Amino acid sequence: MSILITGSTGKFGKNSIEFLLSKGVDPKSIIALVREESKGKQFQEKGLNVRIGDYTNEESLVKAFQGIEKLLFISSSDIENRIDHHNNVIKAAKQVGTIKHLVYTSFFRKEEVEKSGNSSIGFVGKPHIIAEDLIEKSGINYTILQNILYTDFLTEFFFGEKVLENGIFFPAGNGIGNYAIRKDMAEAAVNILLDENQQKHLNKKYIISNEESSSFEDAAKILSEISGKTLSYTSPDVATFENTLTGFGVPPVYIQLSVAFGLAIQNNEFNTLKTDLSTLLNRKPTTLKQFLFETYKKQ
């Protein structure tokens, strides 16, 4: 059974490949899709097959997907061109005709927020909504994973490099979210691909979120415990936040994205009582406290 991983050089892709290997999958049946041959060496060293393909080039994807039976389709990280990228992947997958199961990493949206069209991160969700619709109409058996905001994003983008010195400065208000870590999501995707009872996952949508909900105030308390000193959480108004980051030389695009996600968190758009993650993992997902301790205790 051949399994191709798109976006294999990204963090989600690498995590997925590591889980496939750790669960005993023959490396030769795992195909890593890369844009350039040089990026495939890291996978060839592990015994994997490598194919060249680019989300911008449908023909390259058709060639890369030949003979593939299972496809882990990791969404494009290029927000501006994501719709075209996704369209190319789905069209190529349909054209080859061999893919029996496509697993797609989508994005969690609250139904009521999606219908209102008032989300500050609507531009993030829209390409996924379009992709989901195309996948459902493609005739390919699918599983759609509506992934909540990564817990990893809090530490990678929102907290700042000096959070253990300065505390958290981010416009998330009192919002709470059921954030889940990227590795747990990747493991869930792999578990679906390897499940002996594939039938139960076909043409399903799963909500991938945590059982626990957390606020940035909760995060500050955990970080205080880790650092051994009291760290505060400050939620500035948007103008103050933008001016502060501009003063530090942060690129405008990054500031705009941060504000958009901050407002979405304030609006509790990542807070949900629904989740399939625990069932797919056969265990409880990693908590915010576990993740923060693992992340910052190394420093």
Rank of each mutant, 00 (worst) to 15 (best):
T56H: 13
D133L: 13
V62T: 13
E187Y: 02
N88W: 02
K289A: 13
R82W: 08
I135R: 07
K46L: 15
H128D: 15
V96K: 08
F291Q: 10
G47Q: 15
E136H: 07
D184H: 02
F43P: 01
S75E: 08
S215T: 04
N210F: 10
T105V: 12
Q299M: 11
N197V: 02
L280K: 00
G40M: 07
A172N: 08
V190H: 03
E69C: 12
V25F: 05
K126P: 04
E196A: 02
K70N: 15
E45Q: 14
Y206V: 06
E212A: 15
T151P: 02
F43L: 07
L202E: 06
Y206S: 04
A131G: 04
A92R: 11
Y296V: 05
T98E: 12
E18T: 08
K298F: 03
Y142C: 09
V124K: 00
D78K: 14
K100R: 15
E132R: 10
N191T: 08
S22G: 10
T56Q: 13
E196V: 00
I30S: 04
V190L: 01
K284L: 10
A32H: 03
D237F: 03
D133R: 15
V89H: 01
E269C: 14
I181N: 13
T279P: 02
I83L: 12
Y296L: 11
Y55P: 09
M1T: 14
I144K: 03
I83R: 14
A32R: 04
I130M: 13
N267D: 14
N243T: 09
K289V: 06
G7N: 03
F12D: 05
F153Y: 15
A219P: 01
H128V: 13
D184F: 06
V103Q: 07
I255G: 04
D218M: 03
M185V: 12
F159R: 06
G262K: 01
E69W: 04
S235D: 04
E45F: 05
I176E: 12
E187S: 05
K110V: 11
K284R: 15
K100D: 10
V250Q: 08
K11M: 11
M185Y: 06
D26W: 02
E45K: 12
G53T: 11
N191P: 09
E196P: 00
D84H: 11
I121R: 10
H201L: 08
L48N: 04
Q299P: 07
L149W: 01
I168D: 06
E58H: 06
K63A: 14
